[in-house]
């Protein structure tokens, strides 16, 4: 009896430890993605290449361990690779300088010495590693284009004043971009992610849409269910909780 209790106790303990580790990992990934996005902005990356960089990062760590690979190096290589995938070329020199400033805001840029070249070499080697790990499947379909379509449809359902009073488009896009802080961006269909971002934005401002035989979201995206929307929405909201814990 007692042995049984103790085994189940240790299982629970192990489970607890694992979920505690998971939380720590998610926090780490959150911070690294914030790093990707911050440096991406400074490098003048457009939204889609930035989204690709985050997606590459998340995909990589879906099958690789944080204990083995240095996440910030993977992030830098993901930025570099995303530039190629999305045809917005970025120079390694610029990436290194911007990242260096991120970690050491008070220091001068790195000299072009041995250390610089080592770092550069690590980035390009790690780029090859990411390509291998992802089996060269590096082009993603992002939700951005779907969000644009959905926004156009929803705007036509609202009157002009209701639309201009509330920043729905801005909020939905912001939610969408924020989703790249976590793995939610690689776990769901781009259409579903776009729709849920819009759904969340509309809820936030309490905007009611006319309802016919179908809900508005059934009209714009045929294959999503209410339950799916709710799952994605809760994953998105968890990310905002995470933000409070991480910063």
């Amino acid at each position: 009896m007692s042995t049984q209790a103790s085994t189940s106790g240790s299982v629970n303990e192990a489970r607890g430890r694992r979920s505690a580790e998971d939380v720590e990992d998610s926090k780490k990934h959150f911070r690294v993605c914030r790093f990707i996005i911050d440096t991406g902005v400074k490098l003048g990356m457009r939204s889609v290449p930035m989204a690709t960089a985050c997606a590459l990062y998340h995909r990589f760590f879906q099958s690789a361990s944080l204990q083995v690979y240095e996440p910030y190096l993977v992030a830098m290589s993901a930025i570099y690779l995303a530039g190629k995938v999305e045809e917005q070329h970025l120079r390694t020199r610029d990436i290194i300088n911007v990242c260096h400033r991120y970690f050491h805001p008070e220091r001068e840029p790195l000299e072009l010495d041995g250390k610089f070249w080592e770092l550069r070499d690590s980035i390009v080697q790690c780029e090859l590693l990411i390509l291998r790990q992802l089996n060269f499947q590096v082009s993603f379909e992002h939700p951005h284009k779907y969000l644009l379509q959905y926004l156009l449809s929803v705007r036509s359902l609202l009157n002009r004043h209701a639309w201009s009073r509330t920043p729905i488009a801005e909020t939905a896009l912001a939610v969408l971009k924020d989703s790249y802080h976590g793995t939610v961006c690689v776990h769901h269909k781009p259409q579903h992610l776009a729709l849920t971002s819009l759904y969340l934005a509309l809820q936030t401002y309490g905007v009611q849409l006319p309802r016919g035989e179908l809900e508005w979201w059934q009209v714009v995206c045929a294959d999503i269910t209410k339950a799916q929307i709710e799952t994605i929405m809760s994953e998105l909201l968890q990310l905002y909780d995470m933000e409070a814990k991480c910063t």
């Binding site: 690779l81 530039g83 190629k84 995938v85 045809e87 070329h89 390009v124 780029e127 090859l128 390509l131 089996n135 060269f136 499947q137 590096v138 082009s139």
Partner: peptide, 16 residues
């Protein structure tokens, strides 16, 4: 040497 932009996109496309 290395993965050029066109090589990267070409491989990604061919994979699909």
């Amino acid at each position: 040497t290395g993965i050029s932009m066109s090589a990267c996109r070409e491989i990604a496309l061919l994979r699909e």
